[in-house]
Amino acid sequence: MEILFFASIVVYFAATMLQAVGVALRKEKLCRAARIAFAVGFALHTIFTAWRGIAAGRLPLANQFEFASGFAWSAAIMGLVLYARLKQEWVLTVSMPVAFLVLSYAAFQPMEIKELMPALRSTWFALHIGSATFSYAAFAIAGGLGAHYLIQLKKGHAESEIRMKQTDYMAYRLICLGFLLLTVVILSGAIWAEQAWSRWWSWDPKETWALITWILYAIYLHQRMRMKWQGRRMAWFAVIAVFCVLFTFAGVNKLLPGLHSYAV
């Protein structure tokens, strides 16, 4: 079944390339092929994830490999749903590489199915980690949209004014969604920690970095809502903030072990 996992990486990569060339050369046929490939990659990825869940007898989100795979899966489904609603190419141009890169990162993590350690056997587990994958995916796509916005700007308004506004607005909406979900991650994590270790909050590195990410995006939202920042500045913010998300996601596990070190 691991073959499905590697097949989805290859298909996501093919979709990313087809989309990039299709957009660059303005060839709708290539973009359509990219969309089909992305949907196929997503289907393979879904089957692999479901198989892994059944084989492990639990939610397949218990270690860094599974979590990264869940993150990529969330990015793919978000991209597909947004595309279905908005019918805008740029949504896929951004979500395809996100899904591909995150899944490739997963490929470098230990893949064997391990038994769930006692601390993870909780009903809060699904809510805590499930929201985290979607939250990270929303932030990552928002960062990708930020980068897309900046590239378009550099090209001198290759896209129409309305399209630029749409990209800017979509990044903001995704950050709203990611922020709401990250709040759920932090609060459910606190409840879970109290159940498992009797403490709501212990300044464990993963907790601390989730809080840092949360505050960073709170600043983004304030600058947008209060100071009416838009466009270029917000795009830069969204791009830079993604590095903080990535550090919380992967860097903390590798560099700052703590209570969450099972996630390595």
Binding site: I215, L216, M227, L256
Partner: peptide
């Protein structure tokens, strides 16, 4: 604004608290 500066300071303290062993 002042509030945002405070938030940045919370980030700075938290980052220091996680990067330096406590």
């Amino acid at each position: 604004q002042f509030g945002m500066i405070l938030l940045v300071l919370v980030i700075a303290c938290s980052a220091a608290g996680s990067l330096i062993v406590q």
